[in-house]
Amino acid sequence: MINNHKLYIDLMKKSDWPEVKMIYKEGLDTKNATFQTEVPTWEEWDSSHHICCRIVARINEEIVGWIALSPISSRIVYRGVAEVSIYISNRFSSQGIGNLLMQSLIVSSIENNFWTLQSNIFPENIPSIKLHKKNGFREVGRRKKIAQLDGVWRDTILFERRS
């Protein structure tokens, strides 16, 4: 329950894209969620994420957060390794939704034969770092000046969780 409303976890459908896209855009606007600067089209997003392990959180049919996996490599030896993307609506941050989504993703990833989940997180994104640590991710290392966002070199911290 969130504010006396029932929260439930559900599989993401194509028809969810407009709401998922809006939440993704909120994350882009923070400049602390991703190097991405434009929200992709559904076709771009769909082709870059695994079909399984796409999960949304809903309150009264409204999507308030989402989580999904994308491949880290096209090489068959890395088929069980995936990168986590998780986004929560600004209106619903710090209410435990991220934790419920992450726990659901971990279960789904194991059922779908993923053995390693990884995340690259900006050091400034403290809530995401705390969420990952709480769910068994360990810090692997800091990647200094790995890429630029708006012309500024940024670091990321690599986290991984082994199943």
Rank of each mutant, 00 (worst) to 15 (best):
S163C: 10
S163G: 13
E62V: 15
G27H: 11
A33R: 05
G141T: 12
K134E: 08
S104V: 02
M102F: 07
L149P: 06
L7T: 06
F137D: 04
G80M: 10
V39G: 02
N60K: 15
C53V: 12
I59Y: 04
G65C: 03
G98M: 06
N135G: 06
G151C: 10
M1C: 08
K13A: 09
K134W: 05
I55C: 03
E62Y: 11
P71D: 13
K21M: 14
K31G: 02
W45G: 00
P18Y: 13
L117Q: 11
L11D: 11
R58H: 02
N125A: 14
V77K: 12
Q36I: 06
I121Y: 05
P127E: 02
I88C: 04
N135V: 09
D155A: 06
H132N: 10
R54V: 12
M1D: 06
S48E: 11
M102D: 02
S109E: 05
I59M: 11
I106G: 05
L101N: 00
S89R: 07
W153E: 07
G96M: 12
V84L: 14
N90S: 15
G136N: 03
F35Y: 10
E38Y: 05
W17R: 01
V56Y: 07
S48C: 10
G27W: 12
V56A: 09
V39L: 06
V84K: 00
R161L: 11
I23D: 00
I126F: 06
N135Q: 09
I86F: 08
S48L: 13
L105I: 03
M1E: 10
F159D: 00
T41S: 15
N125L: 15
R54E: 11
I67S: 13
I146T: 09
G141K: 13
I88A: 03
V140S: 04
V140N: 03
